[in-house]
Amino acid sequence: MTIERFILLALPAFSIASVFYIPKEKYRLALISFLAFQTITWAATIIFVEIGSIEYPVRVFMRATKSGFMHNFTFIPMIFTWFILLFPFKSSLIKKVLHYIVFISVIVWFIYFISFYTDLEKFKKGTPLSISIHLYISYFVYFIICHIYISWFSKKENLSQE
């Protein structure tokens, strides 16, 4: 088994396994965060592949899509779900900003790692520095948008965020 296949199997396995650690009263919050973030990452990936700045040489659904299904449809939304579930609502601003930085870094470093050491993802444009800056900025924007949406949604539907 190549490292790429191992990662492609590990990503959904990790995502599914982490579901069991979600507290029962937070299932609804977790589901809506997962679905909302999936919409953004999946659409964004397809657009980036279309304009030719990212390639996914090893992927699932080889015929049906050129975008990385496992990363952008399961793994990264799951990271965002945990970002929402573990968000420190009552803490100071610095802690909240740190929370953002930690979770975005997990995603960015993961993407960075697989693009450097494996064939799962390849960047076609930019230098290593510009790629990481790009990734940080775009994920920061996605996180902010989704977080605003989730706060609005949970206020409307009385989902507890405590």
Binding site: I46, I47, V49, E50, R63, A64, T65, K66, S67
Partner: peptide, 26 residues
């Protein structure tokens, strides 16, 4: 998405004219 990708990947149907045709076959 999951069902559509499955259907196209198994070759059950095709979308010859579509948006974002380079990145996505569904």
């Amino acid at each position: 998405w999951s069902l559509g990708l499955f259907a196209v990947d198994f070759g059950w149907l095709d979308y010859p004219v579509r948006e974002l045709s380079k990145a996505n076959a569904t």
